[in-house]
């Protein structure tokens, strides 16, 4: 089974973000970067699927040079090889990106494509679904687990309000993976060593052919609209003030 896992590099979770001069992106020169969290679960699901069904795991990543680090980490965890679509930061729209990704996968003909369900930076939550549409694959989103059955796969989807649903579909198929469904593995020393010699195929992103249908005008820190009372001082002082407010103003303790 050929399994492609699409991963993205995003700013580390605790980054302090500032808008850059263009006003449409963040100052990203001094940030540290990590794999998008749901994508880490997609990679885990891909590696587990390979363990049960055999085949290979190919990592697909669109991003600038620095994304090589995230690709190497995925290879160190056990992916067999990688495709790196070289492009500047990931602010392109999901349709343009999906077309580029589909192009890069043309010769691969994967049986299963896995993505995270959304990215922690742009948060479109669409790239996987749009990629399925572009590639003509059936898809399922918010997937918690995958098993092979005769004629294809059976997945467990998360629904709202604590409900779940099993869905069956033929292969090839695309799945977007929800965080938290499995325990993530760590890279072993051996894995890290091996990763150095694994293949990374680099492809250039095409310049978009179709005119985009949406445009990001500007980004900005959200204005504070609610007037919350923020306490300052030593932990003891702030704690005392808060307890007083909760007792005598809000009267909730």
């Amino acid at each position: 089974m050929k399994i492609v896992v699409a991963i993205k590099q995003v700013p580390a979770r605790d980054s302090l973000l500032k808008v850059d001069k263009s006003g449409t992106w963040i100052e990203d020169a001094d940030l540290s970067w990590e794999i998008n969290e749901p994508d880490a679960y997609a990679l885990e699901a891909g590696l587990q699927l390979r363990e049960s069904a055999g085949g290979e795991v190919v990592v697909l990543c669109a991003g600038p040079d620095r994304a090589t680090q995230t690709i190497r980490e995925a290879l160190a965890k056990g992916a067999d090889r990688a495709i790196h679509i070289e492009m500047s930061h990931g602010a392109s729209d999901p349709l343009a990106l999906a077309r580029t990704m589909a192009k890069a996968l043309e010769t691969e003909k994967p049986d299963v494509v896995l993505t995270g369900l959304q990215s922690d930076d742009l948060g479109y939550g669409q790239t996987g679904v749009v990629l399925a549409e572009v590639m003509g694959y059936p898809h399922a989103t918010l997937v918690m687990s995958v098993e092979t059955v005769s004629g294809g796969i059976r997945v467990k989807r998360e629904l709202e309000d604590g409900w779940f649903q099993h869905v069956e579909m033929p292969l090839p198929a695309l799945l977007t993976i929800q965080s938290g469904a499995a325990k993530l593995r760590y890279a072993t020393l051996m894995g890290i060593k091996k990763a150095k010699s694994k293949e990374i195929r680099r492809v250039e992103a095409e310049t978009a052919s179709a005119a985009p249908s949406v445009r990001l005008e500007r980004i900005y820190l959200p204005q504070k609209t609610k007037r919350s009372q923020i306490f300052e001082g030593t932990p003891q002082e702030t704690a005392r003030q808060l307890v007083e407010k909760l007792r005598f103003e809000a009267r909730v303790i």
């Binding site: 005119a211 445009r215 500007r218 980004i219």
Partner: peptide, 12 residues
């Protein structure tokens, strides 16, 4: 960024 930033978006 998980609610840390807002973006204005327009259709074309």
């Amino acid at each position: 960024f998980q609610g840390k930033m807002n973006a204005d978006v327009r259709f074309e």
